[in-house]
Design a binder for these strands. Structure first.
Lengths: 208, 208
DNA sequence: GTCTATATCTCGATAGAC
DNA sequence: GTCTATCGAGATATAGAC
């Protein structure tokens, strides 16, 4: 947030526009002018609401960083079998990425630049809140192993494998579309295939 | 290459330095001054060997883009079972990423910025050379399915899952290190775990 | 709160001596 | 081929009127 108490309409517009531009171009490639244009306001207003580019970037990140974690948190807290949970996470995370591609891109940019902002946020809320979602998922995996629902597997590594195979799909789409034209020509079909494939390979990989 | 015929010592130094800086900061975040410093030369020299920043970036990318593909090509062309090939690709690709983290980062930056350079390169050598490596891997998967070595799976989706779960591990390391301190404290141990986990989960996922 | 005008500065690129 | 010095575009950020 800027130095304004409540969150005004304009502030929301700025955050939305900034997410879009930062997501597309990254922090370095983004231009304050472009963000202003996208928000339908003036460049000076950006500095009025958010002191400078760094502050704006951090505000945007704080505003959306929980998006994907909240999906995981939602699915892990439902009363359901591990199998259902896995299917739920795969489907919901893929859908979420389709609907909010900029958030995924922002996350990746953040990781590439050392993840200083994320880490600060995660440190602030040590083990609580949305940041703990991957930890909760790992715990659910551990429980499922104990109950014999799935065979023994390293919880954190599986969490990384799951998230990686979901996120990479969108990240590498520009390159893979050369090898697999359906990605751009029939995106819904490929998305459905992806959901089916991931559940198939990962659940089978966990089966006894 | 610049407008010099052979590749001089200086040119190699520049490419090496540029890979480092472009990998760390991305094309937009990179500074010509920093590349010059890293190469131990003068800023003007960069423009002498490579016309401008764009040209330099493309030269760097062309210089290293085949790194990971060559690993896949090497493993897919060996005379070995599918099981051995899968193990070989996982181990070799993970090792390659450890040894050349900047190449991975450059690739990711390239994907985030639309992959215009990669696509041009891939178009130039339509289906030939290193660019066809993922396609060859997909073909090997198809063959293994036909032979009954593994159960039926979508070849291209499996290729993406494999590459994604390998690459994401390095990409998200900054964030996951908060949740899994071993990543920075005992990196060799975690790398060994990763190799073992990936082969375990993916090969089991492919088994009948 | 919102705008115009402008200050300040960083960076890519070039000119030109050696 | 290599350097120093510098130009000029374009970016962030601010000043100040309304």
């Amino acid at each position: 947030m800027g130095h304004i108490a409540g969150s005004s309409e304009t502030e929301t517009q700025i955050l939305k526009a900034a997410l879009c531009v930062f997501g597309q171009k990254g922090k370095d490639g983004a231009r304050m002018q472009e963000i202003a244009d996208e928000a339908g306001i003036n460049k000076a207003m950006l500095h009025y609401y958010f002191r400078n580019k760094d502050t704006l970037y951090e505000a945007v990140f704080r505003h959306v960083h929980g998006h994907f974690f909240s999906v995981i948190e939602s699915e892990t807290s439902k009363e359901q079998s591990f199998k259902q949970m896995l299917k739920g996470i795969i489907d919901a995370l893929l859908d979420e990425h389709v609907q909010h591609p900029d958030v995924n891109r922002l996350w990746t940019h953040e990781n590439l630049s050392g993840a200083h902002v994320v880490r600060r946020i995660l440190e602030e809320s040590k083990g609580t809140g949305l940041g703990s979602a991957p930890g909760v998922l790992a715990e659910r995996i551990r429980e499922a192993v104990d109950k014999g629902e799935i065979r023994s597997v390293h919880p954190m590594h599986f969490t990384m494998t799951l998230m990686g195979s979901i996120i990479f799909f969108f990240l590498a789409a520009p390159v893979f579309s050369t090898l697999m034209p359906d990605i751009v020509e029939h995106p819904e079909k490929v998305l459905a295939e992806r959901k089916q494939h991931l559940f198939d390979i990962l659940y089978n990989g966990l089966s006894n």
